[in-house]
Amino acid sequence: MPNSPSDRSGARRRIAVQRKGPLLVEGPVEVELEDGSVVTSDRFRVALCTCRRSRRYPWCDTSHRDRA
């Protein structure tokens, strides 16, 4: 069932934020890093690291998790 053409919300990119955990962005995406380089992901959704601990930055690698 197609969305109504007047419904523009379908064109907006949804980003889910969490206090603890990555930003979840609808893919595919291009991410421009500080040095100007661009990395891409074609996944239906991507998890962007916000804790800065990821070894695969800018992608989340679950390094934000509690350790015990």
Partner: peptide, 17 residues
């Protein structure tokens, strides 16, 4: 395994939520 680090960091979020 590199692919699974990245893919499953997304999948686990989607599966839980």
């Amino acid at each position: 395994y590199d692919e699974h680090v990245e893919a499953d960091a997304v999948h686990e979020q989607v599966v839980r939520h």
